[in-house]
Amino acid sequence: MLKDITLGQYFPGNTVAHRLDPRTKILLVLFYIVALFCAQGVVTYTLLALCLAICVRISHVGIRQLVRGLKPVLFIMIFTGVLNLFFTPGGRNLVEWGVIRISEQGLHNAVFMVLRIMLLIMGTFLMTYTTSPISLTDGLERLLNWMKRFHVPVHELAMMMSIALRFIPTLIEETDKIMSAQKARGADFESGSLIQKAKALIPILVPLFISAFRRADELATAMECRCYHGGEGRTRLHVLRYEGRDITALCLGGAIMVGVIVMSRFGL
């Protein structure tokens, strides 16, 4: 069950989507998000969905994997959908049944909100699926480099993020192991009231935390032994360089974003 978590997962490949500079991909996702939040009508939504579909096609990522990524946010999607459906006034009332009222505007909002979240999640997941976590953090670090002038510890944050991503599979495996070990001693995680269920987590969380601290401690020593001394004077194996395809992608992405913003002004 824990193995279903796809967050931060990376599917190696050698498509254009994989080869793009991570900074390009981050910026493209930003453009995409801005456009998504500006989009108003059927035309703009269709355009963005089409863009996503093309990117998915190029990247060779299975649509099933993308849909699987939606599972954890299913609840939020339903929640927003329902909220919008019932509590948006405006327009003609389609259904009136006691206190329950569904307005035209409500239906419209609900459909578009759910679509928006879906497209948002799938778009960002497409980026993490096609970008190794290390180049993602690398790209983020370069993009935010200017913030160093304001004493924001950009390098340290990026390093922390990449280590966190590196240890996700290790900690998931460890959690599985501890759960099995406690089950072997008769621990019961399934039945009982909410409080009992929360209490049943203690035998998992305590060992997990202790182990995480031990790992952190050992990792810090190992990093120091390999001459880690902060970001000062560090070089990289893979140097990021914008190529022709990055420029093209950015121009195209920028143009689509501007297009969507303009179109949405006209309510499309």
Binding site: S132, I134, R166, E218, L219, A222, C227, T235, L237, H238
Partner: peptide, 25 residues
């Protein structure tokens, strides 16, 4: 072995020390 590997790609991990030492790419 798990607590001394820094990166999630083998080559990036091996590159960690020379990167820290400022070796050219």
């Amino acid at each position: 072995p798990d607590n001394q590997i820094v990166a999630n790609v083998v080559e990036e991990d091996v590159a960690f020390a020379p990167e820290n030492l400022g070796v050219p790419p």
